[in-house]
């Protein structure tokens, strides 16, 4: 007999995404995966409830993007309406603290704005809840403890037990989001509650510019045979020639870094 599993209250934090090529507003990929995870959980644990939460301004473009999540099969989304550029963290933390769900799921990083990926951490800190990042699956929820599968690089997985309430963040390792359907998206409701806007002062001082792709280091492959070439292509992307400096003075450390930068041609020799 499997121990009794109860349903859980899940809140999924969603943001307005940005298509990487055209920059059009859309449901953000990671947030949508988070919602997919939550909907999977709802199936797995009957009696679970999934709610959607977004903090931000209401506009035509952002509404269309938010409806993208609703088209996955939800009837409402709670919109904490804020002015453009307001800090979402206090508003979200306050809302979550007022009626705490057991599990908060969010994408690891927003597709527009700062996109620093700090939101889950800041929320966890404010609420005092544990945080698990890179979630791949929720295996079980029993007696207020969730068994989670965390994704590690190169397909590895780690099983964790976390006491609820907790915040989890998902990235590309979580299941792909289901299709968003037009009809349900159009019918669903945005329940807007205006919240006190706390302008994000730090952000206001920033200068925003479109990101440029960081240049990739070319792998120089010196391989004689096809087998070697294949091995080199499939090899882990790890720098081989590193050195570990332990117990060195700051000056020695700085010297080592400077030497490396010269070697790599970042600084003139």
């Amino acid at each position: 007999m499997r121990p009794e599993q109860q349903g859980v209250e899940v809140a999924v934090l969603v943001s307005v995404g940005r298509h990487p090529i055209t920059g059009r507003a859309r449901r953000a990929d990671q947030d949508a995966r988070g919602l997919e995870l939550a909907l999977g959980l709802e199936r797995q644990l009957p009696g679970s409830r999934v709610s959607l939460l977004h903090a931000g301004p209401r506009g035509e473009e952002s509404e269309a993007a938010l409806r993208g999540y609703l088209g996955m099969g939800l009837e409402t989304l709670t919109l904490l309406e804020q002015a453009e550029g307001a800090d979402a963290i206090p508003a979200l933390a306050e809302h979550l603290a007022a009626a705490p769900p057991q599990l908060v799921i969010t994408g690891a990083r927003a597709e527009r704005g700062e996109g620093s990926g700090l939101l889950p951490y800041a929320l966890a800190e404010r609420l005092g809840w544990p945080l698990v990042n890179g979630l791949a699956a929720v295996e079980r929820v029993e007696n207020g403890v969730a068994t989670l599968l965390q994704a590690l690089p190169r397909g590895q997985r780690r099983r964790l037990k976390v006491r609820l309430p907790a915040i989890v963040s998902v990235d590309g390792a979580a299941p792909v989001a289901r299709q968003s359907a037009f009809g349900p998206a159009r019918r669903a409701e945005l329940e807007a509650t205006p919240v006190a806007a706390e302008p994000d002062r730090e952000l206001a001082q920033w200068q925003l510019a479109p990101a440029r792709k960081r240049p990739k280091r070319l792998k120089v492959i010196k391989a004689a045979s096809a087998r070697d070439r294949f091995k080199a292509a499939a090899a882990k992307a790890e720098g081989g020639g590193g050195q570990v400096l332990a117990d060195v003075t700051p000056a020695q450390g700085a010297e080592a870094i400077l030497k490396l930068l010269r070697e790599e041609g970042v600084l003139p020799r």
Binding site: R26, G71, M72, G73, R178, Q179, A181, F182, G183, P184
Partner: peptide, 17 residues
């Protein structure tokens, strides 16, 4: 199936997106 259920099969959701 597409507009109400969001059940366009295989690669179709990606193409539509």
């Amino acid at each position: 199936l597409t507009l109400e259920r969001g059940e366009t099969p295989n690669k179709a959701p990606e193409v539509l997106d």
